[in-house]
């Protein structure tokens, strides 16, 4: 972080673009500078952490799910130990355990965190605003079918809706069901059907007609 005033804006320019700035933006910058000045961490480490999170996108989770669709043994390993299975395909999910849960003909899974906003960020990135909203956190657990309808998802009454309240040490990744009409598709093409929302469980995977 540049402290000289020669107007090398590159370090903190992004904040300037956020005008009008708020107290908490100032506080954030102040804390970042203080912990660097105190030698608690380096500016590089903060930057690398931001880059790490920028690299975590739904595409990672989609790649994992697509492989479970074409490789049943891999799927078993994902359900057994997601971190280990993800590592097989070069994805590091870090220290917080992620549990994969599979949608089937009989069960549709959907994830919420009613107490805060726990989310499988190391596989699908940071959560969308709605996941952190009061409306979603309050209602998804009590009237999941209504909330799913708001996402355009209708689950027939003969399918169990199973809500996972991600309250403690685990994070949850839904493995959406493979859509019909994709029998001859390869992993790369299948991955394009697997959206972020389908891995939270608020929508199914896209159908081949949607691509």
């Amino acid at each position: 972080m540049s402290h000289d005033h020669t107007h090398d804006h590159t370090d903190y320019q992004p904040d300037i673009e956020d005008f009008p700035f708020t107290d908490r933006m100032v506080m954030t910058q102040a804390i970042a500078e203080l912990i660097v000045e105190k030698g608690i961490c380096t500016a590089d480490e903060l930057r690398q952490q931001i880059e790490l999170m920028d690299s975590k996108e739904p595409a990672l989770g989609a790649r994992l799910v697509a492989k479970t669709w074409v490789d049943p043994e891999f799927k078993s390993r994902v359900l057994e130990d997601c971190a280990k299975a993800a590592a097989e395909i070069g994805i590091d999910i870090g220290d917080i355990p992620i549990k994969a849960i599979e949608n089937t003909e009989d069960v549709h899974n959907v994830v919420v965190c009613t107490l805060c906003s726990c989310y499988p960020r190391m596989l699908i990135g940071l959560p969308p605003d709605w996941y952190k909203s009061r409306a979603y956190r309050s209602r998804a657990v009590k009237e999941p079918r209504k909330v799913l309808e708001e996402f355009g998802t209708h689950i027939p009454d003969n399918v169990e809706v199973r809500v996972h309240d991600s309250t403690a040490d685990l994070r949850y990744l839904v493995l959406p069901a493979r859509p019909d009409g994709t029998a001859d598709w390869d992993e790369r093409k299948l991955a394009q059907l697997i959206t972020r929302d389908s891995m939270v469980g608020v929508t199914p995977a896209k159908s081949p007609d949607d691509t």
Binding site: E17, T28, Q29, I50, D129, W130, R134, V141, E150
Partner: peptide, 27 residues
């Protein structure tokens, strides 16, 4: 601790995370 409380419809609009928000996360 809001699970089960009444609330309105889910607002599905989203914003991209600003740099300062990513910085909070990194800190």
């Amino acid at each position: 601790d809001m699970g089960g409380l009444d609330a309105g419809p889910v607002d599905r609009s989203e914003h991209d995370y600003a740099m300062w928000e990513k910085r909070v996360d990194a800190i």
